[in-house]
Amino acid sequence: MAFDAEKEITSLWRAFHGVQDDQRRTFYQWRQAALELLGDKADPMEVADKAWEVIGIDTAKSYFPRTNLSKPNWLQSLASNIVATWMMRGAKIHMEKGENDNEVFIIWDRCPYPTTAKSYGASMEEDLAGCNRGLEVIVEQLAAFTNKKLKIETTKAIPKGEGACVRRLWVEE
């Protein structure tokens, strides 16, 4: 039976990207709905903060079953989960080891969120604050789950025009 691998793979790939695009749009459509309902009281930064808090908590839950502190590279494994999540959201992202097992860097070479944010009138400040909040919440949740002093900081950000987002994830001694 003839099997056209090019057709099969590219069809799936296109559909996958369509879903990613739709997922981002849905996020901003809900944001718009919230802002319109709030009317004059609306503060987009507050709405973004709350939305990413909800996302962060939910995302962290999906990491718990995969967390295994008995492995020496558990922090890298955790970072891999974050990489996989943002890859599914359409980012081009990778992880780099830090100076020791207690430090990793997550690097977003490309992220579609700022572009989508712009098309829905969201500021870059809001876009960055939202993403930072989501990651902070994930890390807070994981810190509570693992009883480790997990920390995350953003050292570079695409929405600031710095070409990439770089986040340092580490365990405080």
Binding site: A5, E6, T10, K92, R110
Partner: peptide, 8 residues
């Protein structure tokens, strides 16, 4: 593709 997906 940029995201690693390969096809012939």
């Amino acid at each position: 593709y940029y995201d690693g997906v390969k096809f012939p």
